[in-house]
């Protein structure tokens, strides 16, 4: 603590020095500077976070209790309160709106589980296989990171082209070249769209898993491998007994981040499917988006968003609780 106080007490006579004019913009009264400087430094960040994240979040919760339809967009604070009305509509699963929300939620869950699992699997496999030095490793690393580096919308547009019915690469390979399908399939409408979305999402996100696992592997002490090699462990045993267990802590964060990103994903289905997503690829973010902006019913949209946030918070809290307990028990 002493050092902190020292650094905030500037040497005497500094403010009358020749440098004063140049610092004029940042001239702050002495009294404020002593304790207030860190807060002043944080002020811009706090201000922007407040405007773009915190206030809208609070507003969103307020809005979810209002009947905020097209009529009230210009004067939304004057919209009438509806209590839990929006929530009742959202969770009444036998009515069309609630039913559609539930379907979208279930599709999103299935999609998220598969996508996160595959991303993790591909990323971990590639990172472990590339742990040793070999020729071309650096080039391969750059190649594998390319999907992640490309602007999302550009690469999703390319995938949309590849999935075209008449002139796409996928039908050309599956139908014309391999003869797997009897006739060319539609990939961007109907049930197939689920798999198209899954492929694009995994293609885009597995490099992130790869990157994280690669970073995690750098912390595995080399001595462990050497000792086990002397004890006669083969490479597969080493992967199973040394590499995998030491990745546990990075996996905890990685899986959570992948889960949240995939579950919240908007851009991929929005760019891939265009105006209206098919039911099999109707992820929850897109669903809420169209429910809000097509009908201009912001109250219902906000209620759905709040429900989504509640779900994500519950899952995150549960996940952290369970994984932390398991880690403690193992330790």
């Amino acid at each position: 603590m002493t050092t902190t106080v020292d650094r905030q007490a500037p040497p005497a006579g500094r403010d009358s020095g020749p440098g004063r004019g140049r610092r004029g913009l940042f001239h702050i009264p002495e009294r404020v500077r002593r304790g207030g400087l860190p807060y002043l430094l944080l002020l811009p960040a706090l201000f922007f976070e407040l405007i773009v994240h915190v206030i809208p979040m609070v507003l969103g919760v307020v809005m979810s209790f209002k009947e905020l339809t097209q009529l009230y967009i210009r004067h939304w604070w004057g919209a009438p309160w509806t209590g839990a009305g929006n929530y009742r509509v959202a969770v009444r699963f036998d009515a069309p709106i609630g039913r559609a929300l539930l379907d979208s939620f279930l599709v999103t869950c299935a999609f998220t589980v598969l996508a996160v699992g595959l991303c993790w699997l591909l990323g971990t496999t590639a990172a472990i296989l590339m742990q040793d030095r070999f020729r071309g490793r650096g080039v391969l690393r750059a190649v594998f990171l390319t999907p992640y580096a490309l602007p999302l919308y550009a690469s999703v547009i390319v995938w949309a082209f590849m999935f075209q019915h008449d002139n796409g690469l996928v039908n050309h390979v599956l139908h014309d070249q391999l003869g797997v399908t009897g006739k060319p399939s539609f990939w961007l409408i109907g049930d197939n769209s689920f798999f198209s979305l899954l492929v694009v999402s995994v293609w885009r996100n597995w490099p992130f898993a790869f990157l994280c696992v690669m970073a995690g592997l750098q912390n595995v002490p080399r001595e462990l491998y050497e000792a086990s090699a002397i004890d006669g462990a083969g490479i597969w045993q080493q992967i199973r007994l040394i590499t995998m267990p030491s990745l546990r802590s990075i996996n905890q964060v990685l899986v959570l981040v992948l889960f949240l990103w995939t579950f919240n994903d908007f851009a991929t289905p929005y760019v891939l499917f265009g105006r209206s997503a098919p039911a099999a690829g109707d992820l929850i973010s897109v669903h809420i988006y169209s429910a809000s902006f097509v009908t201009w019913n912001f109250g219902a949209g906000s209620a759905m968003s709040v429900l989504m946030l509640l779900f994500l918070s519950l899952v995150t809290a549960g996940y952290l609780l369970v994984t932390n307990r398991t880690r403690r028990n193992r330790a």
């Binding site: 773009v52 809208p56 507003l59 949240l260 973010s285 809420i288 968003s305």
Partner: peptide
């Protein structure tokens, strides 16, 4: 804030900017 779904503050932010 990094973890919140964008859709959650999209609508209110839109209305905030309009306001």
């Amino acid at each position: 804030t990094q973890m919140f779904p964008g859709i959650l503050f999209l609508l209110p932010l839109f209305l905030l900017y309009v306001g």
